[in-house]
Design a protein around this nucleic acid. Structure first.
Length: 211
DNA sequence: GACCAGGCACATC
DNA sequence: GATGTGCATGGT
């Protein structure tokens, strides 16, 4: 049996085409971006990342070694810059303590264990952890975000108060655990959300899912 | 000027 | 365990 969620994926893919997420030059850059984009427009995140790139700071050791105040100043365009500077530091500390500063360690761990570890870092919640797992470490986990939730709610797949794990399970239980597809699917839901499923100005009546 | 954006931790009840 | 609040920039 083919699930509804898979049909929706096919529909979105043929309507919007491949989304080519995540725009980054390295897994490390994806991880930094995942923290910076918390509740923030991606455009603003790119400004912040550009600031870091210009200073050649998109490298774990260098980024960890600058004062937290300098880090905050550089990522200012991404908003919540004091909070996020601390969160980046927490993650970098974890990156060196737990992973010894390379991706060899995490590559040996099971996805569930990796997720636990990421969630233990202060400042990394479910969405950020899953974004890192999927987009940086290429693990087949489905990333749930505000768009995912809104789209599913508008199409009566979930209740308004549905929790993160509950929504994630909807996707994980019915779909093949395929990194490429999970990558595209999440990006397509964001795309749909941005065009047709805004918070207020919803264009539900012309949403491609209703065709 | 209001609303929105690829969340999370923490306080309080 | 639910609910509220602070964090902040830049685009529409």
């Amino acid at each position: 049996m083919v699930s509804d969620l898979y049909l929706i994926y096919k529909k979105l893919y043929s309507h919007f085409g491949p989304q080519a997420w995540w725009p980054a030059e390295s897994p490390f850059e994806v991880m930094i971006g995942a923290i910076l984009t918390q509740n923030t427009n991606w455009q603003n995140v790119e400004r912040a990342i550009d600031n870091l790139r210009k200073k050649s700071l998109l490298e774990p050791k260098k980024l960890y070694n600058i004062p937290v105040e300098d880090l905050a100043r550089l990522i200012r365009p991404a908003g919540y810059y004091n909070v996020k500077a601390k969160r980046l530091r927490e993650f970098l500390k974890f990156y060196f303590d737990a992973w010894k500063g390379s991706l060899k360690k995490p590559s040996l761990l099971k996805t569930a264990r990796l997720r636990e570890l990421l969630l233990s870092v202060k400042g990394i919640g479910p969405e950020t952890a899953d974004s890192i797992l999927l987009y940086a470490l290429k693990r087949p986990v489905f990333v749930v975000d505000a768009y995912t939730k809104r789209v599913l709610f508008r199409h009566n797949f979930i209740k308004e108060n549905a929790g993160y794990d509950e929504i994630q399970n909807l996707f994980m239980k019915d779909l093949k655990k395929n990194v490429k597809m999970f990558n595209e699917y999440h990006a397509l839901l964001v795309k749909l959300g941005k065009v047709y499923c805004l918070k207020r100005k919803a264009k539900c009546e012309i949403c491609p899912l209703r065709e």
